[in-house]
Structures are given as C-alpha cells and as structure tokens.
Design a protein around this nucleic acid. Structure first.
Lengths: 332, 332
DNA sequence: CTGTTAGCGCATTCAT
DNA sequence: ATGAATGCGCTAACAG
C-alpha cells in the first residue's frame, strides 16, 4: 500500500485520517487515495484501536429482543453516538451464559463504554457492573436497585404509580384483579423479589382485603400472543377476574383485545391497565390506561454515557430519577 | 501483571487462553489467575484481534429497529454464534450516512463476517457489498435483487404470493383495494421500483380492471400506530375501500383493528391481508390472512454465514430461496 | 512536507 | 515447563 503510492506508512496514515490535511499536497493525497482504492485498502480497526487506546464504539446491553422501550433507547443512543462520531453495537443478554460472555467482552474493551438496560430481568450482576467500573469503563446502568459504584444510575421507580393504579381498580369496585407477568418474575425467586410491579400487586390485593387467589397470577407479559392467550384463558373461567393488570405495555394491548374478543366491555365488565407507555396505548378502544414513564425519552441516558466517555477527568457518580406515573386513559 | 505473578508474559497468555494446560503446573496457573483477579486484568480485545487476525464477532446489519422478522433473525444468529464461540453485534443502518459508516467498519474488519438483512429499504448498495466480499469478508445478503458477487444470497420472492392474494381479493368482489405501504417505497423512487409488494398491487389493480385511484395508496406500514390511523382515515372516506392490503404484518394487524373499531366486519365489509407472518396473525379475530414466508426460520441464513466464516478454503457462492405463500386465514 | 522510529498488548515461534 | 524475541497494523512524536 505505502509502496504502491510511493510514500511512507506514516503518510498513508495521515491522509487516511485526514490529519495534517493542509500540510500534505493534493498530489500526494491523490496518489495515496487512488492506491487505496485500487488495493481495496482500509485501515485495520483492531490495530487502530490498539494504538489509539479506544475503539470509538459504545455498547447497548439489553436483556431481551423486541422490547419497544429498548428500541426507543437504541434510537436515542444511535442519535447521540452519531453526533460524536461513535458507533453503537448492541448485545443481547438473555441468559447467564451470555451475561458472562458480555461482561468479559466489556472488560476486554471491546467498546469504550456501555449502557446496561434491563427490561425486567437483568442478567448482569451488580458486582459485575462494579467490576467493570473499577476497570475504568464508562457505564450507565438503568436500575432501581443497583447502588452506584463508579457508574451512573438511571432510576424509574415504579411502586407508587403501580399503587395508584391498583388502588384505582379496587376503589372502582374490582375485587378480582388478575396479574399478567413476565416469565422470569414468576419463576425466578430472585427476580420475583425484585419486581416492583408484582410486589405492588400483591400488596394492593392485601391492602384492599381482596381474596388472595394466586391462580389469577399468570404468565404472558413477554409477548403479545402469550398475553392474549393468557387473558382469554382467564376470562373463560367461571370465576373470571374483573380487572387485568399487565406487567408490560404489549401485554396490556393484547389483554384489551382479548377482553373485547370475549364479548366483554372495557372497562365496564373488565378493566385493563398495562405497564409501560407504548404509543399504541393511545389508539386502542378504549385507550389503554398505563403506569409508566411520562415520556419515553432516553436522551438523558445517552448524554450521561457520552459525558462520561468524553470527560478528560474523572466524573462524580450521577444518578437521575424519572418516576412512573399512572395515566388513566379510559380502560380502567 | 506478568511481574506480579512472577512469570513471563508468555506464560500469562498461556494460562489466560487455557493453552498448554497440561504442561503448566497448577501452582503457576494459580498464581497467574489470582494475580489477574487482584489486578482486574483482562486481555485486551483489540490486541488479541490484531494478533490473531480475527475478532470472533459477527455483525447483523438491519435497516430498521423494531421489525419482528429481524428479531427472529437476531435470535437465530445469536443461537448459532453461541455454538461456535462467536459474539453478535448488531448495527442499525437507517440512513445513507450510517450505511457508509457501517460499510467502512466492515471493511476495517470490525467483525469477521456479517449478514445484511434489509426489511424493505436496504441502504447498503450492491456495489458496497461486492466491495466487502472482494475484501474477503464472509457475507450473506438477504435480497431479491442482488446478484451474488462473492457473497451468499438468500431470496424470498414475493410477487407470486402477492398476486395470488390480490387475485383472491378482486375475485371475491373487491373493487377498491387500499395499499398501506412503507414510507420509503412511497416516497423514494428507487425503492418504489424495487418493491415487489407495491408492484404486485399496481399490476393486480390493472389486471382486474379496477379504478386506478392512487389516493388508496397510503403510508403506515412502518408502525402499528401509523397503520391504524391510516386505515381509520381510509375507512372514514365516503368512497371507502372494500379491502386493505398492507405491506407489513404489523400494519395488517392494526388495519384489522381499525376496521373493527369503525364498526365494520372483516372480511364481509372489508377484507384485510398483510405481508409477513407475525405470530399475532393467528390470534386476531378473524385470524389475519397473510402473504409471507411459510415459516420464519433463519437457521439457514445463520448456517450459511458460519460455514463461510469457518471454511478453510474458499467456498462457492450459494443461493437459497424460500418463496412466499398466501395463507388465507379468514380475514379475506 | 514527509520519512524514521517506537511502541500499543498480545500470541506465537524457538530456545532453553 | 517457561522465558526471550518477534511482529500483527497502525498512529504519534520527532526528525529532517
């Protein structure tokens, strides 16, 4: 390459990177560029990263594919990354194995920074995160439980809004509220204990003196089809519920359909509330009542990461909180 | 690191990689490992990639976030990658700018191979792909138009199944079939020409002697909300359509709901057909008729990539075809 | 204006 | 069983 253009490797590097652009004659530049095109030459990323001591990539770690709020976050992160010349790679961590592998990769500096965005079941442990931060990796973690240890934390407290929604249901006369949950929170004890949604549900049931019928707690929040089927099944029971509280927004929409397909009215026969603020909540009939972040805005998260990434001196740990709110749109 | 353990860097490399595991005494191993833990040492990925001349990562290039079939593909690729010890990074290319950047990164060997999976509007040009293949990058491209040039191609011909569906609609007496399309295929002339779905629609309209009313061609296939609103708007017109053909599966589902919310019956008043085989198609009322791949199986694609990646000698170009089929489930 | 030089951190011979 | 030496491909000082 350098040979073909008749220049030194340094010069090649300069023109490929647009450095010293005013000190290199157009003629030389042209020769280098055309030689590069001819050979299909492109500087090797690994070598450059090694030398520059940065990869110019950030990582988005999600725990599940196809979650709308993750998509939103991905969009925001991409936008911000574009502005500062970074790339975004996303990694899916939906098993302990993958979690371990991903943490390793982060340790190995596959990327310059990461945002860890669990939807419901974060596979990456707090200790692992602390370890990464200790290694100097810029990190922002979305979590309501993690205590900051060298990384920024973005919280979205769910309990109060859930309480409000459930209080509303019981106060409206509902006695049998069903809970459509995520698979993990219903089977994995650790997750179950951490689930604010499920805890809020259980607490409200007790608070309002409703019968503790655990058969009203079913899976389905992980997908639209599962939620639909779970709800249909609930409604077909002789002792059917009079309200459905779903742990995801997609499930809320599906539940609403299920109720209508069963020939029942929302909210008169069955009330429905979902967690999360899908845009779809506005176009269902009736519009879906939800608990969730007031606005699905992940600009903050992205900003946090890149501030930490581009900072020249160590930044203090930051923590931002965007509480959930209950929005009664008519389905409850 | 090597110093702390009192060994040479070579020995560190050996134990970190589990090489020569039988020729290194447990004692030494232990010392190295504990020193590593103590220092939080982890071998640098860039350096390793540079030396080994491979990154052990593959890339999934998609053109849009939140497309269910891409999610399916991602799952399949992850599964296959896990088996052979590779990682998957996914890159979103939804603008010409990002396309250019991504192609650069691939040229620079950010990864060892890639599958390029456009949903409707591939931003990466055929020439760019050929260039990558010429550089020796293992590549599999999902495309109905690309001619193989050093990469494998996976095709999913749409036309015939679309014809069949549209013939069915017109033969059932529909005269005003609406088309809910993707934004890109309606505004970008190049995409428009390539869109088999839109072409099939236009051809069928003419073939059956239906009025050429282009106001029945609307946007909305890119998202659930947009599709719902577009359809509601269509149905509110005095000259409302008697059938809706949507360019995506999500749009099909939304259209179905729009029809029902408008107080009309499916398929008696309005027939609905969607492109793509969402699982949800089975749980709508009535189930959604679709054109799309018979099974959403991306094992083949993943296999193709890793075969090429792990092959020791150059592989011939392969081409696999999984044609679309029309499945009448009741909404048409 | 451009060439020379010296690593970046690691994996791999080849010695011992 | 392990250490010393070499170079992967590139960038950044520093010469010239």
């Amino acid at each position: 390459m350098a040979a073909l253009a008749g220049v030194s490797v340094a010069t090649v590097s300069y023109v490929m990177n647009g450095r010293m652009s005013d000190r290199i004659p157009e003629a030389t530049k042209g020769r280098v560029l055309s030689a590069a095109r001819q050979l299909g030459y492109s500087p090797n990323r690994s070598a450059r990263s090694l030398r520059r001591r940065k990869t110019e990539q950030v990582c988005l770690v999600v725990d599940s594919i196809g979650v709308p709020s993750n998509d939103q976050l991905a969009r925001a992160l991409h936008a911000r990354a574009d502005e500062v010349g970074y790339g975004v790679v996303t990694m899916v961590v939906d098993s302990p194995d993958r979690a371990e592998k991903t943490v390793d990769l982060l340790h190995q500096r596959l990327v310059d920074g990461a945002v860890v965005a669990p939807s419901i079941n974060r596979q990456v442990s707090d200790e692992a995160l602390a370890g990464l931060a200790r290694g100097g990796l810029p990190l922002v973690v979305m979590s309501n439980t993690a205590i900051p240890a060298g990384f920024d934390v973005v919280r979205a407290p769910e309990a109060q809004a859930c309480d409000e929604a459930l209080d509303h249901l019981y106060s409206s006369g509902c006695r049998r509220v069903a809970y459509v949950g995520h698979q993990a929170e219903l089977t994995d004890a650790a997750v179950r204990n951490r689930s604010e949604r499920l805890n809020a549900y259980l607490a409200a049931r007790e608070r309002h003196g409703a019968e503790a019928d655990d058969s009203l707690i079913v899976e389905g929040a992980d997908g639209r089809v599962a939620a639909y089927q779970s709800t249909r099944r609930l409604l077909a029971r002789p002792d059917r519920p009079d309200a459905v509280f779903t742990a995801s927004g997609r499930a809320g929409v599906s539940a609403l359909w299920a109720v209508r397909d069963e020939g029942l009215a929302v909210p008169d026969n069955i009330a429905v509330v979902g967690c999360g603020n899908l845009p779809e909540s506005l176009i269902t009939q009736p519009p879906l009542s939800t608990v969730g972040a007031a606005a699905a805005d992940f600009t903050d998260v992205s900003t946090l990461l890149f501030e930490r990434l581009l900072a020249t001196e160590p930044l203090p740990v930051r923590e931002i909180t965007t509480p959930w709110v209950f929005t009664n749109r008519g389905s409850s």
